[in-house]
C-alpha cells in the first residue's frame, strides 16, 4: 500500500513537472505584455502569412498521405499480386522516415532537387522551383509523415481479415462497393486517428521545413520556423504568441486523439 501511494505520487510529480508545467507556462507567457502584446504578435504580417503557410501544408499533406497511406496499406495487406518478400520489404521501408532526422529529410530533398542539382535545374528552366518554395516544404512534410497512416491502418486491416470482404464478393459486390460498405466502416476510426496524428506532425514539423524552405519571411516561413526566428531575434513575447496558437491546436488534437482512440477500441 505504501509503495502504491509512493508510485502514484511520483507519477503525479513527473507528469506535472514535465508536461503540465510547460503547458501552463505557454498559456501564461503569451500574456506577459497583456492582450495587446499577444494580438500584436499574432497580427503581424509575417505571423498571418506563416500561419497560412502552415495551414496550407497541413491540408495538402494530410489529404495526400491519407489517400496514399490507405491505398498502400490495402496493397501491403491484401494484394495477391505482390510476393510476400516484396510485402515484407516494403513494410520495413515504410518505417524508415521515422528513423530519419527531420533535418536529414530536408537535406535529402535539397540534395535531389536543389537549385544546384540536375533535376532542380531542369525544373527551374520550366519555371518550377521546389526548394525554397512551397512544393519542397510539402514534399519534406510528406516524407516525414508518410509512415503514420500506414502504421495505423495496416494492423486493423490485418486484424479484421479478408473474410468479410470475401463474403461481400460472393454476394455479388465488386471491390469499390465492398471497400465503402465493408472495409471502410471497419477502418474509419483508424484512418481518423491517422489523420489526427498526421495533422499534428505536419503542423509541428520544423527541421525538414526549415532546411527546405530557407525560412524566408512572408514567403516560405511557417508557424514553427517563425517561432524559431523570433527566439533568435530575442522577440520572446512574439514567439510566445505563435507558440500559444500552435499549442492550443496541439491540445485540440490531443483531445481528438483521445476521442478517436476510444472509438477505435469500441469497434
Amino acid at each position: 500500500m505504501m509503495m502504491r501511494r509512493l508510485w502514484i505520487t511520483l507519477t503525479y510529480i513527473v507528469v506535472s513537472l514535465l508536461l503540465l508545467l510547460p503547458l501552463y507556462k505557454i498559456f501564461t507567457g503569451a500574456w506577459a505584455d497583456g492582450l495587446s502584446g499577444f494580438m500584436d504578435a499574432l497580427l503581424r504580417a509575417q505571423s498571418l502569412h506563416a500561419l497560412k503557410m502552415t495551414a496550407l501544408i497541413v491540408i495538402i499533406v494530410t489529404v495526400i498521405n491519407t489517400l496514399f497511406g490507405v491505398m498502400l496499406s490495402i496493397y501491403l495487406v491484401r494484394a495477391t499480386w505482390l510476393s510476400p518478400l516484396v510485402k515484407r520489404l516494403s513494410n520495413s521501408i515504410v518505417d524508415l522516415p521515422f528513423a530519419v532526422s527531420p533535418v536529414i529529410g530536408g537535406l535529402m530533398i535539397v540534395l535531389l532537387l536543389g537549385p544546384n542539382t540536375v533535376l532542380g535545374t531542369m525544373l527551374g528552366n520550366v519555371g518550377v522551383s521546389i526548394v525554397y518554395a512551397l512544393p519542397g516544404m510539402v514534399l519534406a512534410t510528406l516524407f516525414v509523415t508518410f509512415p503514420i497512416m500506414v502504421r495505423e491502418v495496416m494492423p486493423v486491416l490485418q486484424e479484421i481479415g479478408d473474410q468479410q470482404e470475401q463474403a461481400a464478393s460472393t454476394l455479388g459486390a465488386y471491390s469499390w462497393y465492398t471497400f465503402w460498405k465493408v472495409t471502410w466502416p471497419n477502418i474509419r476510426f483508424a484512418v481518423m486517428y491517422g489523420v489526427v496524428l498526421t495533422v499534428a506532425r505536419s503542423l509541428g514539423e520544423f527541421g525538414a521545413v526549415l532546411v527546405v524552405s530557407g525560412n524566408i519571411i512572408n514567403k516560405t516561413q511557417t508557424a514553427t520556423t517563425l517561432v524559431y526566428q523570433d527566439v533568435e531575434n530575442f522577440n520572446v513575447v512574439a514567439a510566445n504568441g505563435i507558440a500559444l496558437v500552435l499549442a492550443a491546436f496541439s491540445i485540440m488534437l490531443l483531445l481528438l486523439m483521445e476521442w478517436t482512440k476510444k472509438r477505435k477500441e469500441v469497434h
Binding site: Q163, Q164, Q166, A167, A168, S169, T170, L171, G172, A173, Y174, K181, V182, P185, N186, H267
Partner: peptide, 20 residues
Amino acid sequence: LPPQERGIGFVFQNYALFKH
C-alpha cells in the same frame, strides 16, 4: 468468372458477418 457472377451463396466457417 469472378465470385460476384457465379450465382453462389457462401457460408464462412466463422460466418464473416459484417459486424458493423
